[in-house]
Design a protein around this nucleic acid. Structure first.
Lengths: 404, 404
DNA sequence: CTTAGTATTTAAAATAATTAATAAATAACG
DNA sequence: CGTTATTTATTAATTATTTTAAATACTAAG
């Protein structure tokens, strides 16, 4: 019954809704646009755009930003997403801490909080994350009605359809996903996205990969993740698991991985395993500046290794080289399969700069067919940790807009 | 100047053109549709569709196919692509022969020819292919004006933007691609597509993978190729090279590949290398029914091996098992990266049936994370060689329609 | 400082597309 | 076998959108 009422006038409504979404998406990407630009971009006319835009201004989605300068003739009015009235919360969850960021529609950070909440596979974690969220809601000083959505990025296999994190199953409350549980409690739409996918989306929309059609972003952190942009969109695969590079087998005689298989790329290249090999090497008596840490060997961390490499420590350099080579080998597989225009390297390891990118580049040269390399550039992320918040923001806004 | 005339009335023209393409695409997929179905599918109204459809009938693109049966009420008129007046030539080029097929818009084969023209890296090949094309044009008995386009599928890295085959560079006339050269000579639009990509498109549009969003099709032939459908579309990558599974390294101490690298998957799993190992095994005196061929060892071919396996020959079974396992290993990498819903096995080796699919399935079970396997089905192509023609047809028609 | 030139905005007219209404076709039912 | 219910096709009326034209706003040149 209700369905029939909705389907009345359906065609007109559908088209209008398409235009509304189009305008918001366009303004999100462009920052500021004139009516003429919007009309052209959406294959519509200026008077039509005037209508749509007026409506969206009314609803506080967009606002005017003065007029454009420079050209001859009458200066056109600029429109952009409203920097007030509507806010998004981004929770960047990892295994070592959690960051909460409140942003307006223009991605300006209006509130930030970093807490010592580590992702672990317990139901307690969900409770803590909810508490954090509620704290952010009040501490930010904004009206509850000003928040339009909450985005959470975290590692793990996140089932696209249900939002369940299958790697950390206990954080889901019974058969409800963490996301829908928090959504219920906070009365906000919640979107959960894999951290690497958020990162690549950030890099694609507002970073180095802007405007590229096919992008790979490799994120080297506590594990290895591959974020993929295809045809300008984040690529999820059938269930949301696409890009699981960390668990392809690279060494049949390698170490046992936590996933249960043997010789996964993760067992060689993740920061965890890198540190394991550093400690083993030091214990075996390898000559290195890092030997100074021998007594307190558990306190040594990856930044120490990178620092040592910078100072010319050959043990540290070797270790990084080894990791970079294996990463490059894994990446060349992905390059052969995806044929991207650009590969972005991201994560903790980027602090190692050329110590890690050189071997990656070398391995790609060695293991990739030349035709794949000719139009391919390999870059280090410039957005850094911001890429993730921006990616969450873009992901959430995409979802919100498309549900409008 | 002309540009300005075109851009007059541009928005209206654009929308109409969108509808026209939409109707053709819809009818191509559905076979037959009613006005109401078209209107619903394209978010438009019945009177509008009536207009568009009338125009397309006028232009001989579509025609009526009586009325639908079964329902109450007045029976709706069915429309479908016109089976007369417009034809497509598909050339299926491989390293062992070339097939030419003329099809109408409904994919009915109206003329077929198989010639002993083998793909080789010479300019002579281009001349021969042109001759073949011209013969087909005349021998088919159709009016030249009835042909709307020519599609060519062939192995190799085919540069998406230029249509150049980079694996067989000499078939291109100077700096003109084979495709545009033939196009010039025949006055027909020509589209060149990689054979594996054509196959997966065929399987997706009218085969086992119909309606699936993400599909991998592995084609085991003189080499290994991976065809990829993502979000319902053929995935080309930045330059058209996506899916090059054959040249990922699987064995650092393996054989030298013709591509210049070492231990490519191709060196283990292609039909060529399979035969090499069969011959080597026989020479080394492995017990096998195939030993009967020892004197004429060069005449033995893959079908003999498969036949031997069917008869229980354990050497043949072992060889196929080995190949299947390596293929499965390679495929699991692709599964981890693409997270598809279905994997289709295609090519010569399918005649081996379970002898090849069992080890593939087993390897996927062994090397894939369980979450990737739960919704994944592995099937053997049912379309067989037809998949490629149908894929060429679909590819060509997609291109023609989108240029309308 | 005025005027010519350029471009946007607003308003009005023309066109196109949708919805609503009516006519036509067909199966089910009494 | 005719009537009714149901569905589709066609036409008319209404609504929406585009196009055209006029008005406005601004730059730059004389």
């Amino acid at each position: 019954m209700e369905d029939e009422i909705v389907s009345k006038k359906s065609v007109v409504d559908y088209k209008k809704s398409q235009y509304r979404r189009g305008v918001l998406a366009e303004l999100y990407q462009s920052g500021l646009s004139t009516l003429a630009q919007l009309a052209k971009g959406l294959h519509s006319s200026v008077p039509s755009m005037t209508n749509i835009v007026e409506e969206l201004v009314e609803e506080k989605w967009i606002s005017t930003f003065g007029t454009a300068v420079g050209n001859h003739g009458r200066r056109p009015v600029l429109f952009g997403l409203n920097p007030q009235n509507k806010y998004i919360i981004a929770l960047d969850v990892s295994t070592h801490d959690t960051k909460a960021v409140v942003m307006n529609l223009q991605r300006d950070v209006v509130y930030r909080k970093e807490v010592d909440l580590r992702l672990e596979d317990t139901s307690q974690f969900a409770d803590n994350l909810l508490t954090l969220t509620e704290n952010v809601l009040t501490e930010s000083g904004l009206k509850p009605s000003d928040f339009i959505a909450l985005g959470i990025s975290m590692p793990g296999l996140i089932h696209f359809q249900s939002g369940m994190n299958l790697t950390y199953r206990r954080i889901n409350h019974s058969d409800d996903s963490l996301g829908s549980w928090i959504s219920e409690k906070t009365n906000l739409p919640v979107f959960v996205v894999n951290d690497t996918k958020a990162t690549v989306l950030g890099e694609h929309r507002f970073g180095l990969a802007r405007g590229k059609k096919h992008v790979l972003a490799i994120n080297i952190d506590w594990g290895v993740g591959l974020g993929i942009i295809l045809n300008g969109d984040i690529f999820q695969g059938a269930s949301g698991f696409a890009g699981e590079l960390g668990h392809i087998q690279v060494d049949p005689e390698g170490e046992l991985c936590h996933c249960g298989k043997v010789g996964c790329l993760d067992t060689i290249t993740s920061a965890t395993s890198l540190m394991r090999r550093v400690r083993r090497g030091l214990k075996e008596g390898r000559a290195s500046k890092l030997s100074a840490y021998l007594e307190k060997i558990d306190q040594i961390d990856i930044e120490n290794v990178i620092e040592a490499a910078r100072q010319g420590d050959s043990f540290a350099i070797d270790i990084l080289y080894e990791v970079g080579t294996e990463l490059g080998k894994g990446l060349s597989i992905a390059v052969h399969l995806f044929n991207p225009e650009i590969v972005i390297v991201d994560g903790i390891v980027v602090k190692a700069g050329a110590f890690i990118t050189n071997p990656i580049g070398q391995a790609i040269n060695k293991y990739c067919l030349s035709d794949f390399r000719s139009d391919l550039s390999i870059e280090i992320s410039q957005l850094g940790e911001k890429a993730k918040w921006i990616g969450i923001h873009a992901y959430v806004l995409d979802q919100v807009i498309s549900s409008l």
